[in-house]
């Protein structure tokens, strides 16, 4: 078993422990701003996992969009609303119990399914990137096979961001 354990797997399990520790912190911390920090930790860990499985471009996008933009945006939102907000201490109301039971049940079912499925060993000799580096291969794929969805998603982004600005701006007197 020990020979089976290579360096990548050791790094992966350490990263998983970090990610899950940050996630548990996110659930257990009570000050909202600390929760946003824990979220940043989770996103950084996931980016490292992407690098580890060879998806470099997705990892960099994760770093830029999630760990950079979204975490900072959430911190801005917390600061603009009541930044002293605290989650109430954990009380086991029926609602909490039901949510915890549902989450644990779903987790158990998922893990049992993953465990009982025989996954084919990922072929190590297949080059996913077809000789290019990963960003080049992803770019070729995006602009050749997924050109229309790519344009649509840019449209979605511009609509979303303009809509966000319109929703969030201060209402003037003459608008009302």
């Amino acid at each position: 078993m020990l020979a089976y354990l290579n360096g990548g797997m050791v790094v992966f399990y350490l990263l998983s422990v970090c990610i899950l520790a940050c996630a548990v912190l996110l659930i257990n911390l009570r000050k909202v701003i600390y929760m946003a920090l824990a979220l940043g930790g989770i996103f950084l860990g996931c980016a490292a996992v992407y690098f580890l499985v060879g998806a470099e471009f997705v990892g960099v996008a994760q770093l830029l969009v999630y760990a950079g933009a979204i975490t900072i945006l959430i911190m801005f939102a917390i600061m603009l609303t009541n930044h002293e907000a605290m989650e109430p201490a954990l009380r086991w109301t029926w609602r909490q119990v039901a949510a915890a039971a549902a989450a644990v049940l779903l987790c158990a079912v998922l893990l049992w399914t993953i465990r009982s499925t025989v996954w084919p060993p990922s072929p190590a000799d297949v080059d996913l990137n077809q000789g290019n580096s990963n960003p080049v291969a992803v770019g070729i794929m995006l602009f050749r096979d997924y050109a229309v969805p790519f344009e649509l998603v840019s449209l979605l982004l511009i609509v979303g961001l303009v809509g966000a600005v319109i929703l969030a701006r201060e209402r003037k007197e003459e608008d009302e």
Binding site: M9, S16, L26, I27, A99, A102
Partner: peptide, 30 residues
Amino acid sequence: MAYFPIPTGSLLALGAILFCIGLYGALTKR
């Protein structure tokens, strides 16, 4: 490109546990 063969099940299990923690948070947080 360095590729480390990490077992698929472990990666999927990480995803599943993260999903369930997120589900619990979405259902209970105020």
